[in-house]
């Protein structure tokens, strides 16, 4: 019984990791061909590519753990909204370039911290995926951090946009540090840390950068929740899935 529960929790945990990178990867890819300058367009596409690659590793393992014969592609393209486990921040529309990079920075910082712990996971496969992904994510953070500082401490216009982006996204940060029985099971099994315990490390990356960007962190710790436990996604996720899953829904089993 304990084994069954742990397997269920592990599947849930892996979907949370994989759905985060899948949904953000898809959102970031929406910029392809639309970014303000060519270099940024390429950077965004490359970031999206890394995220989708990480998704494959997480969801492939999730599907194996589940043991129902589903593949990573089945999980990505054939689940409906209520089965997705990404945090709400990642499914929000991109907004402007500044908001996209602010979201990237906040998520990159969380990922860097989370993956840093997962490298020491008791689950070898989780540890290997984390080791691989953390190299890519460190690179992402380097760029998103630099861009947030550059735009925040930039012109009056760019500063105002970055401040607005921070105010829009800040209430979504708390969900990344929520914890529930799945996290308790993962902690007990030594697979993953309790997300709530990661906040101080996250703040140590994010707060100095926001200060350097001359941005003001909004007051209050209200957090929108409902993504990582699938309780209540925003209306936006359904629209993403419409685009992302359209081909497999219209032509079931179609192959590249």
């Amino acid at each position: 019984m304990a084994e069954v529960m742990e397997k269920t929790a592990l599947f849930e945990f892996l979907c949370r990791m994989g759905d985060n990178t899948l949904i953000l990867g898809h959102r970031v890819s929406e910029w392809c061909g639309h970014a303000p300058v060519l270099e940024e367009d390429i950077a965004l596409a490359n970031t999206a590519l890394d995220l989708i690659g990480q998704t494959q590793l997480w969801l492939e393992y999730a599907a194996e753990v589940e043991g129902k014969g589903r593949s990573a592609d089945d999980l990505a393209f054939l689940r409906d909204v209520w089965d997705f486990r990404n945090v709400l921040m990642l499914e929000l529309p991109n907004g402007d370039f500044g908001q996209t990079l602010m979201r990237q920075f906040l998520f990159d910082a969380w990922q860097v911290v989370m993956l840093g712990h997962l490298v020491r996971s008791s689950d070898t496969r989780v540890s290997e995926i984390a080791e691989k992904a953390s190299k890519e994510v460190a690179y992402h953070l380097d760029r998103s951090r630099g861009t947030v500082i550059g735009l925040g401490d930039g012109t009056e216009e760019s500063n105002a946009r970055m401040q607005a982006a921070l105010e829009r996204l800040w209430p979504y940060v708390g969900e990344m540090f929520a914890s529930d029985e799945t996290d308790a099971a993962m902690l007990a099994a030594g697979v993953a840390p309790d997300p709530a315990s990661l906040r101080a490390e996250f703040d140590a990356i994010v707060l100095p950068a926001l200060a350097e960007a001359t941005l003001t962190v909004p007051e209050g710790d209200f957090a929108h929740k409902g993504g990582r436990d699938g309780g209540m996604h925003t209306e936006h996720l359904g629209h993403i899935l419409c685009t992302m899953q359209w081909l497999q829904r219209a032509y079931p089993g179609a192959k590249w």
Binding site: E39, N46, D50, R143
Partner: peptide, 13 residues
């Protein structure tokens, strides 16, 4: 440096 990313994931410009 022009950009941290380039024409393939392994390159920068």
């Amino acid at each position: 440096k022009l950009s941290q990313f380039g024409s393939t994931p392994c390159k920068a410009q």
